[in-house]
Amino acid sequence: MLRFLFTIIFLIPLLIYPIDIYSGQQDDSSRERAKEILRQVEDMWRGTSSHSLFTMQVKTAHYSRDMRLEGWSKGKEKSLVRILLPLKEKGTATLKSGNSIYNYLPRTDRTIRLTSGMMTGSWMGSHFTNDDLIKESRMEEDYDPFVSFEGNRDGEEIIEFTLIPKPDAPVVWGKIVAIVLSEGYIPLKYYYYDEDMNIARTIIFSKIELLAGRLRPKVMKIVPADKPNEYTELVYEELDLNIQIEDEFFSIARLKRM
């Protein structure tokens, strides 16, 4: 009996270690590759800096909304979006600087820093939350990606990544599954799962066209899983990457002067 126990106790580490080391090595290189590809995907719209014009259509059970917006970004941490249309809201702007979000409201000529309680609220009435704006740039810090499928699916060569949140990352999703074209690493679909591993929302990329010198999806559509009839659709009209822009552009003082 004792011998049996000893065998078990000594065998368990022997069983675990080789596999762990083996899979660890496997993971490290594939994880690095996954990270590298996802970084490229993320940079698709960002570059070192960017300027864009886009429309946003929001459809919900209670309202539909068409907006035209202009955006600037520098690096991962700084971005600024301003409403051009509808006229009623023209000039309303959102500034993201690090982990803070500021809204400039032309009607009142005031700038409000959003509190943590407002982070789960909708951004400009869309299906994006204010939190999405913050978390979007933190994907790499918050998630561990690995390649969960690679090859032909539905006639397209794709790579499927699964992003698992790091143990203590402050995220709301249980996991994210990203599907990217093998060629050019063009994103096709992102599935966001909630903590119970049910699909919570889907982002679909489409209309792959030449934009800012290379093929990129022009349309990005987000569909919440619990309300399949609702969506928010972003359509890029113009995109300029790696433009000249100073840090001061992304300041609260600047918000008002625009």
Binding site: R65, E89, T92, L105, R107, T108, R110, S122
Partner: peptide, 16 residues
């Protein structure tokens, strides 16, 4: 005081 919220038409309700 500045109020910021979401109106029923999805727009940003705000006023002083």
């Amino acid at each position: 005081l500045v109020f910021l919220g979401q109106a029923t038409d999805g727009s940003m309700a705000n006023d002083l």
